[in-house]
Design a protein around this nucleic acid. Structure first.
Lengths: 291, 291
DNA sequence: CTAGTAATGCTCAAACGAAGCATAGGTGCG
DNA sequence: CGCACCTATGCTTCGTTTGAGCATTACTAG
């Protein structure tokens, strides 16, 4: 009858991008909107806290869809999904690595993503494109695969998470669509798709809005901040340009303290200048190009 | 019980930005999601066609909210709003000028918007800021007013439509909040707010995605295209830079024909290169700075 | 003392964006 | 016909932003 609320709650810890899950990692935390909830966000907070003992910080609405499976009599069920960002992770709660579900999304050096795309996804998509006889349609499929996965001359675009998931789905390469070729844990119903939507939104937003600071502690080094951005984006960025971008925009101010446990020269500690949120609604933490 | 679907259906015609309305311009077209609808978008299309005899082109989801007013027993009503773009307007249907509802949003030369902000909004917001005793809070209010309405040194940002509406609401300057100072027709319930959300989304999207072409005929001059952008953005752009941006990105191709009824030198006619939608998911029609 | 490591400072060239000048090719009017 | 006027179109200039790399600093581990 009413609405179902679903959360993609994310945190970054130890170089891993984490999402809060329920039921042994098989679904996202969710629950129905109740009349006692003052608003949908309030309802969402209540459900997440109850299911995980975790309180929500930054929250933003993602997408709403009419539930395809559980159409009940007298009005369809509507699911409203939210993206939430957390600064700390509680031990024991169901935090899982994003990239266990979407392994092709991690393109940091040392991760599996790059090789997975080259060795598994690209050949599989070529074969998918080859299945069709029509020349134009085949060209369209190859173009689409190239744009989504950065094949050939095309650049890899971190924010195309949802497009990539949908392409793999349409090409029948993942379990949801009956395929087994491409690895990655699946989730209940369309929750993996919702996760992809959340990651896509976060990766896009981090480029033009200072949301990274919702994922780091109050006090942080520029190295930690950069590592957080890289974990979210799934790719590395140019260090010097990153710090120039952050400092030139006056997004941070030094606390005065330094952190010595970095393994090299001690790093200054900074804090986020919350005032920028009011000063400029349209600023942003742009992330420089990779490598 | 189920979900309510609401549409912000927009077209540009004769230098006016239009929105499709029902009930003499007092509400946006809407209707409940029915079980016979295959999807929410299908349901929306059905409702809009039934209420207006108009078929929907480009459609994108805007925002979902739990209805504040009509909380019925057994599950709250949820409203899902959509933005739709149309190329042509049917005579007689309820097309109204955006800027009749949000007159402060039009800053093209010859429009009322600029003067309205300077003569009415700015003084009213100053007085609103002055109502509070706390120095910090007063400074915050003035900063917020300045950012939203481009006061003082701040630039006017076309895409802050929703922030401006919410500020006017919070400051009690519009009828929805009991005020009478700032002109502009109101709508039923929160439909004017939804309109503001739609305009904000369109103005933001037009900068990084080629959606303008959903608003112009198949064949158009660069002057017409520019005028459409300006109507949507509510401000003028630098002509030479606009055309360079559009042509340099290969967004259009000449049809070969020219249009002589321009009042000056005949203009070449162009068509949108649909292929760019597949070639680059992340391109965009960036709009140059005003004036 | 030396090697290793990360932080930080600075330079340089290419790309981009804002603004304006100049010319082309039509119309309407005396 | 000649002239004023208008919009379209082509091109240049200049300052800013970005991508990339070199060099130096300040620690730790052995």
């Amino acid at each position: 009858m009413g609405a179902e609320l679903v959360a993609v709650l994310t945190a970054v810890s130890g170089g891993q991008a984490l999402v809060l899950t329920a039921d042994e990692g098989t679904r996202l935390p969710s629950g129905p909107l109740r009349s006692e909830h003052r608003s949908m966000q309030a309802g969402l907070r209540a459900w997440v806290e109850q299911q995980t003992g975790h309180s929500l910080g930054y929250v933003e609405q993602l997408y709403t869809f009419a539930d395809p499976d559980r159409s009940s009599a007298g009005g369809r069920v509507v699911s409203v999904s939210y993206l939430g960002l957390a600064r700390d992770v509680t031990e024991g709660a169901g935090w899982r690595d994003w990239y266990a579900y979407l392994p092709w999304e991690d393109h940091r050096p040392g991760s599996q993503g790059g090789a997975l795309v080259a060795d598994v996804v690209e050949p599989a998509l070529r074969s998918w494109a080859g299945q069709v006889d029509d020349r134009d349609e085949r060209a369209r499929r190859e173009l689409r695969a190239g744009v989504c996965f950065g094949l050939g001359e095309q650049p890899w675009s971190p924010e195309l998470v949802l497009q990539r998931y949908e392409l793999l789905y349409e090409a029948g390469l993942i379990p949801e669509a009956g395929g087994t070729l491409v690895p990655g844990e699946r989730m209940w119903a369309d929750h993996r798709r919702i996760l992809a939507t959340g990651i896509a939104r976060l990766r896009a937003k981090i480029q033009y809005h200072p949301v990274v600071f919702e994922l780091v502690p109050d006090s942080f080094t520029l190295g930690q901040l950069q590592s957080t951005v890289e974990t979210v984006a799934g790719q590395t960025v140019h260090k010097q340009n990153f710090r120039r971008l952050v400092t030139a925009q006056d997004l941070v101010e030094p606390t005065g303290a330094t952190e010595t446990a970095t393994g090299g020269r001690p790093a200054r500690l900074y804090r986020f200048r919350r005032a920028v949120l009011e000063e400029r609604l349209a600023s942003g933490t742009k992330l420089p190009r990779p490598r």
